[in-house]
Write a protein that binds this DNA or RNA. Structure first.
Length: 663
DNA sequence: ATCCGCTATGCTTG
DNA sequence: CAAGCATAGCGGAT
């Protein structure tokens, strides 16, 4: 059996032919609209936070925010409603009346609608409204990905759908369509950052305008701590748009084309060109992919880290996308859960649990894939290994369950049939999706052996897939195959390990190709916890604690594999994100200290992870993180492993050109 | 003058 | 409440 088949959370890799027909760039229109937005207002003066706000208010002679219409606080406190859009849709700083000096098109603010997050009169605390009086715009940007220089307006052209350049059909699924574009949002991302910029106004009281922490931060060396992504805004904020920095990275042509087109003359003195140097690295000759494969053999150019941060910033999910997608998912899923509980008494105690990269906060590119576990508590089950991996089991009840409905899910020999349960669940869901209004929800075709029931939710321009995974939860000790796994003592501590192992075991309905009633151990709840609370010290990444780059590395690993899979779909079809996730977890064990993952050393940490993964590939040995006897890289696929290891080595040695390529 | 690294703050989802 | 996204604006580098 192919290890790649073993993990439902990653089986998306090569499926979704159903999505292949989706538009090349889902969300492009939305993004286009968003990014068409001209610069948003900007407050002047340079005080941080409330101090700065106070200054602005004093200067502008305005009432305090709490009393001002248009301010959320104002609404909460029952201030006078304003019916027209008094403010552009932008981040926390924009406010009504501001922006007089910000970028505008044609004298009026050419802003996309701000009202989706603007409170509606009469709707207390409403976050969304449809009462916008200002039409959204569509804007086209130059094809070919010319860089947008700062202060350069992209010359939007009303009424044109935004497309950055010709899109090649996606090779992800071998279906010749753009499924993976959608999955990763790469195409969309390329347009994400496009926005107009405006001359930036500086604070009038430079020194005084410094935020209280500035001095400390600069003086005490926190400059070494680089943020993963803090797209600075050199002009006024565009509504929902990316910073110019992000934009420049996203739009960078892969082959090192001279930055700057007619629209975007780059500053010759700026550091930006170095940062934007495409991954081919210009002067650095490409190192063949067959070269040595451990990390660090090529001293990375200083710009590497910067570029990785750029890449990372492109991968983060847009807040608006998250909001829209989660709204859909959170409408559909509770509806289905209720229906499932009602329709079959066996399923009456089913509970929703979230899993997968979105809920681990390592989803990259676009929030278009969600994993929902439907967890059924079971008691007194007996597990019998179905093969030698230690991951697959037959499940039977030690005592027949009180609920007699269960009998219909049992095979003659008393084993609980994953297949039968999935089928029942699937039928209920298929019936129930018909009752969901306001969007199109369909159940994707069954995939042999897949533990998931995949929903497609369409509400143009959104297209989301939700994997529903039937899961058994048993409060009993973990099987002995897990005894020597989860070696996190040095990393998260012995107590944490003990706590984890006291948690329930989860089994997902995963049929093997030759046996229909098997269940596979799932540790996604533990993985989620480890990724969320990943620090060796408790304060890692907490609000005031030191920030690390672990999640950043995981995202980059995922992205690298995605990109390579797009480039070599056939050769890499057996690899999935669970492989890199596993390698990442091993890396966390191998380098347990937070200091090993200093945010400023993103490039180094990433290369270490990759180096480890490449070693695994070369040895065809990647141990399941929880089940040490289970090798995720079976020896039969050695050639494929070497292929991937060569590809990764090439990327490693040449500054990751694939991060900047479109497939 | 422009760009970059960084922090502070607000907002949203989980 | 934590985490992540989005933005403003500083000092310093180029």
């Amino acid at each position: 059996m192919a290890p790649a088949d073993h993990h439902h959370l990653v089986e998306r890799c090569c499926r979704r032919p159903d999505l292949a027909a989706r538009p090349a760039v889902p969300g492009a229109r939305r993004r286009g609209q968003r990014q068409a937005a001209a610069a948003a207002p900007q407050e002047h003066g340079g005080r941080a936070g409330s101090e700065r706000r106070g200054l602005w208010e004093r200067r502008a002679g305005r009432p305090p925010a709490a009393a001002r219409p248009g301010s959320p606080r104002g609404w909460k406190s029952g201030a006078v409603p304003v019916l027209t859009c008094p403010r552009p849709r932008a981040g926390g700083r924009s406010r009504p009346g501001a922006g007089k000096r910000s970028g505008r098109i044609g004298g009026r603010p050419q802003l996309d609608c701000c009202c989706r997050s603007y409170p509606v009169p009469g709707l207390k605390l409403a976050r969304r409204a449809t009462s916008c009086l200002r039409p959204a715009r569509r804007v086209s940007f130059p094809r070919g990905g010319a860089l947008l220089g700062r202060g350069t307006h992209p010359k939007p052209e009303a009424g044109t759908l935004l497309l950055a350049g010709p899109r090649s059909p996606c090779c992800w699924c071998g279906e010749g369509a753009a499924a993976m574009d959608a999955a990763s949002g790469r195409g969309a991302r390329a347009r994400r950052g496009t926005r107009s910029t405006a001359p930036r106004s500086r604070g009038t009281e430079k020194g005084a305008a410094r935020s209280p922490s500035r001095g400390r931060a600069a003086g005490e060396g926190s400059s070494a701590i680089a943020t993963l992504r803090t797209p600075r805004t050199d002009g006024a904020p565009a509504r929902g748009g990316r910073s110019a920095r992000r934009a420049s990275a996203a739009r960078e042509p892969p082959a090192g084309r001279a930055a700057g087109g007619a629209e975007a003359p780059p500053s010759s003195r700026s550091r930006a060109p170095a940062a934007r140097v495409p991954a081919a690295l210009g002067s650095v000759a490409a190192v063949p992919d067959g070269a040595v494969a451990a990390a660090g053999r090529r001293p990375p150019p200083a710009a590497d880290a910067l570029r990785l941060r750029e890449v990372l910033s492109r991968l983060s999910l847009l807040r608006e996308d998250v909001s829209e997608a989660s709204t859909l998912v959170n409408t559909v899923v509770p509806h289905l859960v209720q229906a499932i509980r009602d329709k079959d008494s066996c399923f009456s105690s089913i509970e929703r649990q979230s899993a997968g990269s979105y809920y681990e906060r390592v989803k990259i590119s676009e929030p278009n894939e969600f994993d929902i576990m439907l967890v059924m508590p079971v008691t007194r089950i007996q597990l019998d290994e179905s093969d030698d991996t230690g991951a697959y089991y037959y499940v039977s009840f030690k005592r027949s369950p009180k609920e007699k409905g269960w009998l219909k899910f049992l095979e003659e020999d008393g084993k609980l049939s994953a297949f039968k349960m999935l089928q029942a669940l699937r039928e209920i869901i298929k019936q129930e999706v018909k009752n969901i209004k306001g969007m199109e929800v369909t159940v994707a075709r069954k995939k042999a052996g897949s533990p998931a029931i995949t929903l497609q939710i369409k509400k143009p321009p959104l297209e989301i897939s939700v994997d529903i995974i039937l899961t058994l939860e048993a409060q009993q000790s973990w099987p002995c195959s897990t005894q020597a796994g989860l070696k996190i003592e040095q990393w998260l501590g012995t107590k944490k390990r003990r706590d984890f192992r006291f948690r329930s075991i989860y089994l997902v309905a995963k049929a093997l190709s030759y046996i229909r009633n098997t269940w596979r151990l799932s540790f996604s709840h533990i993985e989620k916890d480890m990724i969320k609370n990943h620090g060796n010290s408790k304060t890692c990444c907490e609000s005031n604690g030191p920030k690390c780059c672990r999640k950043g590395c995981l995202k980059l690993l995922k992205f690298l594999l995605e990109q390579l899979k797009r480039k070599h779909p056939k050769e890499l079809e057996k690899f999935c994100s669970y492989h890199v996730k596993t390698a990442f977890l091993h890396s966390c064990v191998m380098w347990p200290n937070d200091t090993d993952w200093h945010l400023g050393n993103l490039d180094h940490s990433f290369q270490q992870c990759l180096g480890f993964f490449v070693d695994c590939l070369q040895k065809s040995q990647l141990t399941h993180f929880f089940i040490p006897q289970y090798n995720l890289l079976s020896q039969e696929d050695k050639a494929r492993h070497h292929f991937l290891s060569r590809k990764i080595s090439y990327e490693l040695n040449n500054g990751f050109p694939v991060f900047h390529e479109n497939y």
